[in-house]
Computed example of a mutant assay.
Amino acid sequence: MSTTLAHTATPLPAEWRDFFALTKPRVMSLVVFTGLAGLLAAPGAIHPVLGFTAILCIAMGAGGAAALNQWWEADLDAKMKRTAGRPLPSGRLLRNDARDFGLLLSGASVFVMLVAIHWLAALVLAFSIIYYAVIYTIWLKPRTPQNIVIGGGAGAFPPLIGWIAVTGEITLMPILLFAIIFIWTPPHFWALALFVKTDYAEAGIPMMPVVAGETSTRRQILAYSVLLLAVSLLPWLIGGTGALYGVSALLLSGAFVALSVPVGLRRSQPNDRMSPEKRLFGYSVIYLFALFTALVADRMVLA
């Protein structure tokens, strides 16, 4: 790893906003929401204070892993327009400060989860941090175009952890929640990669559109979208949810497939603001929020 960035000049004074930016707040909002959904959808009950603590630990763990990701990839971030304004490539933070901040958040999140909630929840949380900060960031991302496919597990842990915080065990239902996000991740990120692939190419990151080409990427987006439709219905089909979730999953995932069809069949991508790729990417974020909202609403109805 190169250490030339941010050490060649005196960094600008850091603010709390710079440390907060290291946690990738937009990503963390999705992490916190799906973790909370897993906690609320789980059978049984948890004391509100403990529930808040569990979600706080999930947020801290995700933020710590994100900070470690940016510490490691600071040089790569400097090469891409989309990430050049982050605290490290812009010189607002020292690289070692980002590393120490990430380690502190990660360690504190696992420790508090262990002491306050459950050893299994703490163990899965620790593994999720290692998965993202080490397995995905250091090993997968710079080496294989399948980085997003395998690395999708990193963002799929929160509902599993939330479920464990309540029940203290891993059953089929939380595994299916994990699987939904795991399968959702490739079409979500590849839709983004299609319209920022130049950034990835210039940074030397082997993202699927760069290595396999647009045609192959588009076909895989469509294939994963169809698979997502099937997987999203499984919680209903096994009897883990009611009809409210089942109908919502069918409609939401059906729309996902419908939006992925023009992406999958397209051969070139003009730089227009309403391209099928951008529509699919935008909807994919709404989709996950809506699907897990339906999951929680269904649980409330059944209760």
Score class of each variant (00 low, 15 high):
residue 129 I to L: 04
residue 285 V to L: 15
residue 239 G to Q: 02
residue 188 H to P: 10
residue 97 D to I: 00
residue 132 Y to C: 08
residue 3 T to W: 14
residue 285 V to W: 10
residue 210 V to I: 04
residue 34 T to D: 13
residue 284 S to V: 06
residue 217 T to A: 11
residue 229 L to P: 03
residue 3 T to K: 14
residue 83 T to L: 06
residue 14 A to C: 08
residue 8 T to G: 15
residue 240 G to C: 01
residue 278 K to G: 05
residue 219 R to L: 08
residue 242 G to C: 04
residue 44 G to Q: 14
residue 138 I to G: 01
residue 118 H to S: 03
residue 182 F to L: 15
residue 126 A to G: 15
residue 7 H to P: 00
residue 210 V to K: 07
residue 22 L to R: 12
residue 102 G to P: 11
residue 287 Y to E: 14
residue 36 L to V: 12
residue 123 L to W: 11
residue 253 S to H: 10
residue 286 I to F: 15
residue 70 Q to I: 01
residue 209 P to K: 07
residue 135 I to Q: 03
residue 250 L to P: 06
residue 13 P to L: 02
residue 111 F to C: 06
residue 245 Y to R: 13
residue 219 R to Q: 13
residue 123 L to V: 06
residue 280 L to Q: 04
residue 84 A to G: 03
residue 135 I to K: 01
residue 29 S to N: 02
residue 153 G to K: 05
residue 176 L to E: 03
residue 83 T to R: 09
residue 10 T to G: 07
residue 259 L to G: 04
residue 300 M to C: 07
residue 191 A to K: 07
residue 275 S to F: 04
residue 302 L to D: 09
residue 216 S to V: 11
residue 64 G to A: 05
residue 202 E to R: 15
residue 270 P to M: 01
residue 241 T to H: 06
residue 184 W to N: 13
residue 8 T to F: 14
residue 245 Y to F: 09
residue 213 G to K: 15
residue 189 F to Y: 14
residue 97 D to M: 00
residue 248 S to K: 10
residue 12 L to H: 11
residue 253 S to C: 07
residue 219 R to E: 12
residue 251 L to I: 15
residue 55 I to C: 00
residue 3 T to R: 15
residue 248 S to H: 09
residue 142 P to E: 12
residue 215 T to I: 06
residue 176 L to M: 05
residue 42 A to M: 09
residue 246 G to L: 07
residue 23 T to R: 15
residue 303 A to H: 09
residue 134 V to S: 02
residue 72 W to Q: 07
residue 155 G to I: 09
residue 154 A to M: 10
residue 56 L to T: 11
residue 299 R to D: 08
residue 63 G to D: 05
residue 230 A to S: 08
residue 286 I to K: 15
residue 72 W to K: 08
residue 160 L to D: 01
residue 163 W to E: 11
residue 127 F to L: 07
residue 252 L to N: 14
residue 2 S to C: 05
residue 70 Q to A: 03
residue 177 L to R: 09
residue 23 T to N: 15
residue 112 V to D: 02
residue 250 L to F: 15
residue 248 S to I: 05
residue 15 E to D: 14
residue 280 L to Y: 04
residue 290 A to F: 06
residue 88 L to P: 04
residue 108 A to T: 15
residue 253 S to P: 08
residue 82 R to C: 04
residue 258 A to N: 05
residue 5 L to N: 13
residue 12 L to S: 13
residue 92 R to C: 08
residue 283 Y to L: 11
residue 117 I to K: 13
